[in-house]
Design a binder for these strands. Structure first.
Lengths: 229, 229
DNA sequence: TAAATTAAAGGTTATTTTTACCTTTAATAC
DNA sequence: GTATTAAAGGTAAAAATAACCTTTAATTTA
């Protein structure tokens, strides 16, 4: 490939991932203690440098697979952090992604081996660089976005009950919801498929399992948006 | 500054701006014919390479000032385009911004001198690289975002009438709105200040001018969001 | 084994918001 | 001075939301 732009400066580009999970009670983030200087041993998001042979989405997926073993994760870039001194080591721009994963599908062995930990979003420790800002922004974004897009399902197992789904939204929005009204609303959107199977052991009566119907959602979405909580 | 990451690859980073304006009738984009190869003389967004001494926001503002003369423009990064071959010249990642400007405040002399043109969004010509994709995404984003944030005011003069504001939203959403209901809704948000002055020459009766009250909006926004169209 | 307990699931009603119009008003044009 | 037009304000039906109540299906306890 020719050098069309040889006079222009080049930059180090990092990809950092805010990885969200939900353990049936609380929203959690996957964090790790940084293994190299600067700020070695401080809590950090998962990140790496963009390589020449990959685009940003590929790099983010590569990072996610490294730490969780998962291959097809919901991932979205949301902001670039480009202040000149944001990394005390050297100038590095960071492209921040957020990821929504089903904790129980992830490779806990792998996560543990690398020393990563799932931490409640209201117990996040001090983070390196501008990572706290990344987390805050990612939280704002999923809070807003999950009102209009079916993000929630990315955090739950394939089969989930309506009370489980409600707990998730309560964790995201940080507020209690009326269970009867929540049920009505979510069912009125016609994107859930009821299974003939009940959850055991949690409540006496047991709640029916449901599945998110991606196909139905796509149809609705194409015929003018619909999903709203 | 030490070289902490000397083994990592560096990348060319462009900043491209989707610049929106509104001429009282139609949403418009500022476009220009590219002055250098590859794809010289093809229509393009305004862009430049990120320099070492600036962050992304600074670079975007620099580009905007160059083409419009305006200094404090509404600007927001919205997506990175990073496919390895997106630029046929050399690998360049692009950080795309959208800008909302008041056309009448811009330096038309400057715009003209550089050969830039305001083009209706439904008459956009073929664009270089992935710029069409950038425009499409920016449009989607302002369409969604202007429902929940007072973006519209960035595109109108300081003083505007409610029918003017309505026309703008009709251009953004690409649909007619009921004028009585639109008026009620926008006034119910209590972020407009009515001026004791009427628009002349457009309609017989003349419509009162209003101003957007940034202060009131901020107060409302902080006490839980409010703005919604 | 029957009664008590609990959360799921469904139902009801009042309130608020939205939508679709209709009426009045203030200016200009004829 | 009357007709015309769009601005501005008003109204009523319909839809959506929110608050709360009842029934149901299971488990636990007596």
């Amino acid at each position: 490939m020719a050098n069309f732009y040889s006079e222009e400066p080049k930059h180090l580009l990092a990809v950092d991932c805010v990885i969200f999970g939900f353990d049936r009670e609380q929203l959690k983030l996957l964090l790790v203690k940084r293994v190299r200087p600067p700020e070695k041993d401080q809590w950090s998001l998962m990140g790496d440098f963009l390589q020449d042979n990959e685009n940003l989405e590929f790099a983010a997926q590569r990072i996610l697979t490294k730490w969780t073993g998962l291959e097809h994760v919901f991932l979205e870039q949301f902001h670039n952090f480009s202040d000149i001194n944001r990394d005390p080591g050297e100038r590095v721009l960071s492209v921040a992604f957020y990821a929504l994963i089903k904790i129980e599908d992830s490779d806990k062995e792998l996560t543990k081996r690398y020393g990563a930990e799932w931490i409640d979003i209201d117990k996040i420790p001090k983070l390196i660089f501008d990572h706290a800002q990344m987390v805050e922004m990612a939280l704002e974004i999923i809070k807003h976005k999950s009102r209009f897009e079916p993000l929630g399902f990315e955090l739950l197992p394939e089969k989930f009950t309506i009370p489980q789904l409600q707990k998730l939204y309560e964790a995201i929005f940080q507020q209690k919801l009326d269970s009867a009204n929540f049920r009505k609303k979510i069912l009125s959107m016609k994107v859930l498929k009821k299974l003939n199977e009940k959850e055991k052991g949690v409540s006496k009566r047991g709640a029916f399992y449901f599945q998110f119907d991606q196909g139905k959602y796509k149809k609705l979405h194409e015929s003018g948006l619909l999903f709203e909580i």
